[in-house]
Amino acid sequence: MNKFVLSVIGKDKPGILAKISTILFTHGCNIEDVSQTILQTEFASIFIVLNPDAHPLDEIGRSLNEALADMELSAHLRPMAVPAQVPAADTQPFVITTRGVDKPGTIAAVTGAIASLACNVVHFRAIITQDEGVDEMIMIFEVDVPAGVEHRHLRRVMQETCSGFGLDVSVQHRDIFETIHRV
């Protein structure tokens, strides 16, 4: 089945999704999956789109970029290879949270440590707060930890990395958060 990935970024304002979905509809496309977020003033979204009539991507891309240019947005399209069915990896969901003064290189170091253990970050959020007049950054990583990685080892690696940046770090199974807060 013909699919492509569409990403759109730019200034956030009302009507973006309506415009994108209308253009895709006029090209006979169907949106299968979508995720969007707003960081400060910036809109970012990613779509997986079914293209049953195999309309040329450059034509769809041109239509989108012409329509979105006035809204200070840009679109990027890429064909999507539909993989054969692969078994789900044997992983456990953990949440890594760091807290400390925002310093250059922190995110690179922390994500590097996570990657070194082949853990996949599935959600990442960084929040800047003020703590007694100092900018403090809280980073929340939801990660899939391979079955072969022992959580104590993961914690040790994260603590070693984070201590160099003066960050507090915690590593907890994701279930505890859902258990406490959700009915």
Binding site: V95, H123, E178, H181
Partner: peptide, 13 residues
């Protein structure tokens, strides 16, 4: 996806 409040309030507790 967990929200920030769920994570931060748990850690605070």
């Amino acid at each position: 996806m967990l929200n920030d409040r769920e994570v931060l309030s748990t850690l605070s507790m």
